[in-house]
Amino acid sequence: MTPGKMEICQPLKRQAILLFMVIATVLCLLGTGRYYEQKDRYQHVIFKGHPKTPNINFIFYTVKTSKKFYDSRLDVVLKTWFQKVKNNVFFISDEGDKEYDKRTGHRLVSTNCPTTHARADLCCKLDYEFSLLATQQASRWWCHFDDDDYVNVRNLEKLLRKYDWRKPWYIGRRTVDSYKARINGTKYPYQFAHGGSGFCMTTVLAKQMTPWIGEGKFMQTCEDFHLTDDCAVGFIVTHLLNVSLTESVLFHSHWERLKNLTEETLHEQISLSYKNHNRISLSKDKAKFDEKQDPTRLLSFHCLIYPKDKLCL
């Protein structure tokens, strides 16, 4: 390249770099502004109109969902276990919906996170969950579930009351014994509770995670560790904070064969799930709804443990 061309290219290169930095800064500010706008909005909702009951602040629930699953999954949750803890649950989604926002009591959080199962997209939603948790200063436990989970809230509360909420506890179910995170060529062992079956932790423990999660930090954490959302939570807790996973076999996801759960023990479980034909089995004489009305079988299961609910009459 001739000296004359070099003199022309260098200013253009500097201008291009400057333009890129300006655009990146503007996008970052827009994203941050949208995040804090959402956070402020829902912080107001969280403290509004809660009934005065002894257990209202015991567990704060967040449920990950997506607009494409509102009719097939979220509808089931809203008809069943949500009714038992409706003031304690927020739904973290990628897009809003007027009907479902009303049905959730305006607890449907539209994050603008992408809709895929890419690592950054999943971590985006969990970061919102954690940031909402930060506004729940009176809550003792945080429990995360997916929109295809049924939660037996009585059994969950019974389990958590066995543990001291003033200490760091991380409770859930593993899919394998242990994992290793590969970071900068080094492998680090850790364990994690599978998000698909749900997990819980004390808010005491959650506060210890703030260097890595909340207010937008978790997406970068996931990228740095090369881990998805529930794996990254497990890595932070069990490796970085050195808090062991307390496993409970009462949490279930669609990754296991759900038909292996006997009908006699279903009422003892904490979480149940489904995917296509992988679902719990109920005899016809005990099922309130047929399979066409209730393809997940969770409406009928809810009626077994809450037969006097409006849904079941």
Rank of each mutant, 00 (worst) to 15 (best):
G4P: 01
F82D: 03
L313S: 13
R166T: 15
Q43T: 11
R297P: 00
D285C: 08
Q208C: 01
G31V: 10
Y179W: 07
I59F: 13
C303M: 07
Y179H: 10
T221N: 03
R257C: 03
T202D: 02
G195I: 04
Y306W: 14
S300Y: 08
T25F: 15
K79C: 03
F301D: 00
Y274L: 01
C124I: 08
H144Y: 11
T203P: 00
D290I: 00
T186L: 10
C123F: 01
K64E: 07
K125Q: 14
G172E: 05
S131A: 11
A193G: 10
H252R: 09
V237P: 02
T265G: 05
L205M: 08
H44E: 15
S66R: 12
L29F: 15
L313A: 12
P168R: 07
K67F: 12
K102G: 08
I46G: 08
N276K: 15
E129K: 03
W141Y: 13
Q136Y: 07
Y163S: 02
S283I: 08
L122M: 09
L311S: 06
R103H: 14
S197E: 08
S271M: 00
I213G: 01
F225R: 02
K79I: 00
G31W: 15
G96E: 13
T111W: 11
T186S: 11
E263Q: 13
A193W: 06
D147Y: 05
I59M: 09
V76S: 04
Q293Y: 00
P189F: 15
M1F: 11
L159Q: 07
G96M: 12
Q220S: 05
F58L: 11
D164V: 06
E7K: 14
P11F: 04
N276P: 02
T53M: 12
P114A: 03
K259P: 03
R173Y: 12
V77R: 04
C123V: 04
V63I: 15
H277A: 12
A120L: 03
N57M: 09
L30E: 12
K187G: 03
W169N: 03
T203E: 06
L29I: 15
S300P: 00
R103D: 04
N242T: 14
D101I: 07
T228W: 04
I270R: 00
Y42R: 02
